[in-house]
């Protein structure tokens, strides 16, 4: 695994989660700043998918390939769906739901890391 990218993803998605929680606390809806940040996270997740698959092919480690790729692909789905779900809600709970979606990314990245080093 390319660790700097993994940790950057953990940090960025946690920052996005805090942003979403603050918006919810202030009774605001999600805004373009948050969506922009999520766009950056999503781009990094796409890079992680490519890096992960390239490294998986090149490694002689005993990595569970299907689970590894499953986590890489699954991570791509969460934020776009979460953002749509949040945009369709006119109350603060939309931002709250997006915060939950953001929290999934660090969990998935840590699982990926565990699968890789196991």
């Amino acid at each position: 695994m390319f660790d700097p990218l993994t940790w950057a993803l953990v940090a960025l998605s946690l920052a996005a989660m805090v942003f979403a929680v603050v918006l919810a606390a202030l009774d605001r809806r999600i805004n373009w700043w948050l969506l922009g940040l999520l766009g950056v996270v999503e781009a990094a997740l796409l890079a992680q998918l490519v890096v992960g698959i390239v490294q998986l092919i090149g490694t002689d480690r005993d990595v569970s390939g299907p689970f590894f790729v499953g986590y890489l692909i699954g991570a791509l789905i969460v934020l776009p769906v979460g953002a749509l779900w949040a945009l369709a809600e006119s109350s603060r709970w939309g931002a709250g739901a997006l915060a939950v979606a953001c929290l999934v990314i660090p969990v998935l990245e840590l699982r990926l890391h565990d699968i890789w080093v196991a």
Binding site: G74, V78, G82, W85, W93, G94, A97, V100, V104
Partner: peptide, 16 residues
């Protein structure tokens, strides 16, 4: 709506 937004988000994550 309301808190249900978060509940359904968590359900969606577990569905995935």
């Amino acid at each position: 709506h309301g808190p249900g937004r978060i509940l359904i988000a968590v359900y969606g994550i577990f569905a995935l």
